[in-house]
Design a protein around this nucleic acid. Structure first.
Lengths: 253, 253
DNA sequence: CAGTGGTCTAGACCACATG
DNA sequence: ATGTGGTCTAGACCACTGG
């Protein structure tokens, strides 16, 4: 007996579904359009809702869909390119999309203390910032600054809040920035970050760790979490590297 | 009546489970150790297996666990830092962990053609490469090179295969590299990449798109997919930015 | 209120690795 | 043959959004 389909294992349903939906998105839907609800879609494709959801999850991860509880599933716009680590000699706070929220002087997590080279019991300034692009929050950041990097900071003016954060950044900017080193890895949004990014806890994020070096010392350490579904991080001196999804261009919104 | 738990919605079980397991990993397990199987774990925590799996998925996404079908779930080693876009003036192929596999001259996907600025019907050289670190595959790459970038390439020697790929890279290296621009985004591994990375289709990957510029022209375009679970991408001129998980250090392997 | 996506369950079967 | 993780189902209930 000849085996017609030698050793070809059937694709998982959710993966095949992802492919079908991708093609449908490329050809039959426009940005912002609302998809049928999950129960209808599952019925239409003859699968359980859990399976359909597995496919939708993939597409959301790839930035093709956006799902909001109580509202529905919509076709996502192309990812926005956000510049990271460009303009080598720029301190944080020079007017880009970053918005300082507040600042506290407290003992950081051990991992941060180790990376900074400060003692595990030494307090550092921690500035919370939020990055906004096109009116949408794209990143939440904790910027850790050893007191030694901002020696002239007076506790008198701006004791707390956003004003305090701005004061810390202002002082920091007086240092000579030698270089910055970036690292990117995948993570999941913790409760705080999730709220700030308008996502659920556990949402995939790109964690960018930046080491700001000045005078062969680590003057500051930034840990920023970017929404992985909506962001494309760009490095290097200039503009965007545009790669869109294949297929016919979708109609305008 | 005072509401004791004002508006605090109970955490999802899988998220709480993730937290508990994270702490357990930090304190009670060492790298490489095998966890109990999913059915036992689910029973132990009093949840359905699907819920337990949701927590494990998170941890695998965060690089804390490694799961292999037919084998089991093990504690993953810390992510390896892989340098991307360092040494600005380096062409691909200068002996780093990259290994050329083969090369074909074919019409690329429209998105690639557009990014290169070549016509959608013009064939380009496409070199497949694989990046290995510590003996493990970490990335799969397609490097697209317009024929104009390698004018002296003769089809005579090395008509195909790895030798051909090396020949193309050798010719490419004769150009003056002006700069490279990188972009990072989250994606999911397609069938080919998945096989090359020893993962299942749909596994999360960090897609690094690099534009190699020479003489104000785009001389080559690289699309590389890195295993998101095991890799931390580092940018910039020097070494690693080390941030490990918090908590007590786990015992050695 | 009705409708959406998010969580959770209990069970079944499959693909794969290993002894 | 056994045990592992991977896929899939059918159904229930919850949390949130909006009219």
């Amino acid at each position: 007996m000849g085996t017609t389909q030698l050793d070809t294992v059937p694709e998982p349903k959710y993966w095949h579904l992802r492919t079908v939906l991708t093609e449908a998105l490329d050809s039959e839907f426009s940005v912002g359009e609302i998809l049928p609800n999950e129960r209808d879609l599952a019925a239409r494709f003859g699968v359980a809702r859990a399976t359909l959801r597995q496919a939708l999850e993939q597409l959301e991860l790839e930035g093709r869909l956006q799902r909001r509880r109580g509202v529905g599933t919509t076709v996502a716009p192309p990812r926005v390119g956000v510049a990271v680590g460009s303009r080598k000699h720029d301190w944080p706070g020079t007017d880009d999309g970053w918005q300082p929220l507040d600042s506290v002087l407290a003992v950081p997590p051990p991992a941060v203390a180790d990376a900074l080279g400060t003692g595990r019991d030494e307090p550092v300034h921690t500035v919370r910032r939020s990055r906004v692009t096109d009116g949408r929050p794209v990143a939440a950041e904790l910027l850790h600054i050893p007191p030694a990097s901002v020696p002239d900071l007076t506790a008198i003016d701006a004791p707390s809040g956003a004003a305090r954060a701005r004061a810390v950044l202002r002082e920091l900017r007086r240092l000579e920035l030698e270089r910055q080193e970036n690292a990117v890895e995948l993570g999941s949004a913790h409760a705080e970050d999730a709220r700030q990014l308008d996502r659920l806890p556990g949402a995939p994020v790109l964690v960018v760790t930046t080491r700001y070096c000045a005078g062969s010392r680590i003057a500051a350490l930034s840990v920023a979490t970017y929404r992985a579904d909506t962001c494309r991080l760009t490095f290097g001196d200039s503009g965007d590297v545009e790669i869109h999804h294949g297929g016919p261009r979708s109609r305008a919104c």
